[in-house]
Design a protein around this nucleic acid. Sequence first.
DNA 1: GTGCAAAACATCGTATACAATCTTGCCGCC
DNA 2: GGCGGCAAGATTGTATACGATGTTTTGCAC
Lengths: 236, 236
Amino acid sequence: MKSAAKAQQAEDSAETGAQQIRDAIREAIVERRLSPGTKLSESDVGNLFNVSRTLARAALQALSYEGLVSVEKNRGAFVAYPSPDEARQIFSARRLVEPGILREAAARITPDDIIHLRQLLLEEGRLMSERGQTARRAEIKASGDFHLKLALISGNSIMQRFMEELVARSSLVIALYGQSTASSCGHSEHGDIISAIEADELDRACQLMLHHIAHIEADLDLRERKSLGLKEAFEL
Amino acid sequence: MKSAAKAQQAEDSAETGAQQIRDAIREAIVERRLSPGTKLSESDVGNLFNVSRTLARAALQALSYEGLVSVEKNRGAFVAYPSPDEARQIFSARRLVEPGILREAAARITPDDIIHLRQLLLEEGRLMSERGQTARRAEIKASGDFHLKLALISGNSIMQRFMEELVARSSLVIALYGQSTASSCGHSEHGDIISAIEADELDRACQLMLHHIAHIEADLDLRERKSLGLKEAFEL
DNA sequence: GTGCAAAACATCGTATACAATCTTGCCGCC
DNA sequence: GGCGGCAAGATTGTATACGATGTTTTGCAC
């Protein structure tokens, strides 16, 4: 069923090939298989996916629009390395939009949606208890999917796309500045939010959401690394 | 000084050439020199700017990501023709984010910013009283610049970029579905919002903003055009 | 005259080739 | 021994070429 839903979203699939590469790289970034600062040369990407530099370039450009990759003129593309200031802006943006999305979602939510949300939660909890890299990665994605699903329910595809960007970039920020072992979101907080929605306590749901975002942000260590451009090289 | 600030933003300028084309086309779309549905073939764009299809394609792809251009596989790129539903989503998104931006902006606003905002207003008013196509186009842009400036003041570059997209797409929607001769925003409403900010009446400012957006949307005729694919051909 | 089919055309999708720019290592000179 | 310039290598920027796909037109059969 999942694959069916995915196929629906991908429509007739294939799209333009570059999209596939873009999605693959994005997934790798979000799941933190690619670390911030990693160089993504056009040739390497092209070779990796067995396509020409043209397509690799297109994919990297697209990712640069989403803020996941930064391309420097005549120097190349790198997995984005968000500054502490950027990180703050990302979470500021989330605080700004997510309550609104939540309200719109609550107004249109169906019983089926709630079932789906609870399923996501279950899956998330299951992954949380598991060990291993792959489980951890899946958990990261599942945790973001909760927020994305809310955006989907809200019925506003523009906000949905925007949230996709914010969630993806959040993952980068957490990878860089996260401290605790808890990869991303407090699991129980998601459940509380759903319960509040079910109980039609909208204001409380929004408060919970804000609290939840603050909770994630509080786990970050956003002290400024002193402008060490060379620091990036060390990270490799 | 304006040019200095602009130069700073454009950094060492030139960027990659494709950006220039993208910006040129975007400006043309926002100022409504290009109508929704207009075909933008890669070859034509390339010839027009004396560059190869490669760059033209890159520019069109970028615009497609912003929602200003829709590219159809193996068919070509067209100036976006937002559906009534898309139009509603755009304004829904604006209602969702602009109050938040306003609040953040109000928290960081400086006297200089207010002066600048009032200058924008003056310019807008001046253009409003003028006749002629060019004045009308400039007015459209000036009207959007007010909202953009607020996003700039908010200090969140992510929300700023998002607002740029929303304002640009709004221009498309108004071009398609706008009824009154008033090109875009009620001029006085902008002034009221500034006054409310100055008076530190934040809640009132937000209310005014929501009212303002509703006012723009109310001027639209969002009745569904019955699936006339050929209609597009007529527009050419 | 109408409808279908096939070919010609136009346009996009992708690959490859060449030019421009930056980095890097080397060598001579101070 | 250190510093500056120069040249080689690598990487991106842009253009052109060829193949794939869709659209239109034309011609033939009914």
